[in-house]
Write a protein that binds this DNA or RNA. Structure first.
Length: 106
DNA sequence: AGCGTGACGCAGG
DNA sequence: ACCTGCGCCACGC
């Protein structure tokens, strides 16, 4: 496993339940600057049985990012997990970041 | 070693 | 508020 990924995973683990963080936030927190894409790449390499709360990571628009891998149900799983934590989605399938985004400085 | 690709973000229009 | 284009950079061919 690449060392970068481990750093990203550690950052994701900081996100408290019921809150979400954007890829950009994770990138910054983990010292990757603005390399949000790398965060996505890292999560892609994340094993499913991992304890990392990857479902709390959404894009800057407050929506669940589409996987390229078709047939993967991780997207719906992500939404289910978030809703289970109390995160609400609007009719367009978006999250109100103003209310649920995680304040990184914590 | 070059090229396309991608769980993104931001500036423009 | 929505759609497009461009930048970023690690990976796999």
């Amino acid at each position: 496993m690449r060392e970068r990924n481990a750093i990203v995973f550690a950052a994701v683990c900081q996100i408290p339940p019921g809150r979400v963080a954007t890829y950009g936030q994770i990138a910054r927190i983990s010292g990757l600057g603005r390399l949000a894409r790398q965060v996505g790449y890292a999560l892609n390499a994340l094993p499913e049985d991992s304890e990392v709360p990857w479902h709390r990571v959404v894009n800057a628009r407050g929506e669940i990012s589409q996987r390229s891998a078709a047939g993967s149900e991780s997207e719906s799983l992500q939404r289910l997990r978030l809703e289970a934590e109390g995160v609400r989605f609007d009719a367009r399938g978006r999250i109100d970041l103003g209310e649920y985004s995680w304040d990184a400085a914590r």
